[in-house]
């Protein structure tokens, strides 16, 4: 008996120890994990009635702003009314594609059309004073003017690209227009006698195939050509405001039904 007692105490002790060890392993194997519960989501628009600013951020911006204000606050021209871009056709697209058309025709008298892209116009324009900064915001990209000679048989492909996008800013000579459906389109304008190439002014971004205008990039493979003109699209806009507008004669644009939706 006496020899058994210590053994039993030892066994109980050992069992308790093992139980504690097992419990410890179990506890340490428990990993606390959060359950995220969605509460709310909102957009916080800055309240312009409250003067809210950060002195730290202002201090960082100020030297950069001062440098820009040396040139960017200049008035370069005037606009008759506020303009936004829209599809298939909008005031801003018509204003700017006509600017490009008027410039490009001075170097390419047989220009047929201008094709720009909706995504390239980056901000609406206000009515009244247009500053240099505003033109930069409208066209921040350093895109150059490009002239593409597109074989006439490739015109349906160009129309298709514009149709699929639901319209892009264009301008066509002689009050021509583009009729678009969901995935095809037809250009309507009078061809010159024996005309085999369509002469198009665009940006080098599009002529390189940007924004899905692969039809321009592949023009040389079909006998056409691409010629860069060395002038920025932004400078064409800038010069149009500087040369063609003043306070009493602001620039303006209309909806001209250049792009017509629906089946013919």
């Amino acid at each position: 008996m006496t020899s058994v007692q210590p053994y039993r105490r030892s066994t109980i002790h050992s069992n308790l120890w093992l139980l504690g060890l097992a419990l410890g392993i179990f506890i340490t194997s428990c990993k606390s994990r959060l359950t995220p519960t969605y509460v709310s989501g909102e957009l916080k628009q800055f309240d312009t009635s409250v003067v809210l600013h950060s002195a730290e951020i202002d201090a960082i911006i100020t030297p950069y702003r001062n440098e820009l204000e040396l040139t960017m606050t200049d008035t370069v021209g005037y606009l008759a009314r506020a303009m936004v871009k829209s599809r298939p056709e909008g005031l801003l697209g018509n204003l700017t594609s006509k600017m490009v058309f008027d410039y490009a025709r001075t170097i390419e008298p047989e220009l047929d059309m201008v094709v720009m892209n909706h995504g390239g116009l980056r901000t609406p324009l206000p009515s009244g004073v247009i500053t240099r900064s505003k033109v930069f915001e409208l066209m921040p990209f350093d895109n150059e003017l490009a002239i593409v000679d597109l074989p006439i048989e490739r015109l349906p492909e160009l129309a298709r690209i514009i149709a699929v996008k639901g319209g892009d800013p264009i301008w066509i000579r002689d009050e021509g227009y583009l009729q678009i459906g969901d995935s095809s389109g037809t250009f309507h304008f009078p061809l010159r006698e024996g005309q085999k190439m369509i002469r198009i002014a665009t940006s080098n971004y599009l002529s390189n195939g940007g924004d899905h205008y692969t039809v321009f990039r592949s023009a040389p493979e079909h006998g056409g050509q691409i010629r860069l003109q060395g002038i920025l699209i932004r400078d064409i806009f800038m010069n149009a405001f500087i040369n063609d507008s003043d306070k009493d004669h602001p620039l303006d644009a209309d909806i001209n039904n250049i792009i017509r939706s629906g089946n013919e």
């Binding site: 428990c30 994990r33 959060l34 359950t35 519960t37 969605y38 989501g41 909102e42 957009l43």
Partner: peptide, 24 residues
């Protein structure tokens, strides 16, 4: 979510947390 553009908006989403101890 998406806030538009140009820093006009600041998106804000709130979550609450609870714990569930999960035995591995």
């Amino acid at each position: 979510c998406q806030t538009g553009w140009a820093g006009i908006n600041l998106g804000k989403i709130d979550y609450e947390a609870h714990t569930i101890s999960t035995a591995a």
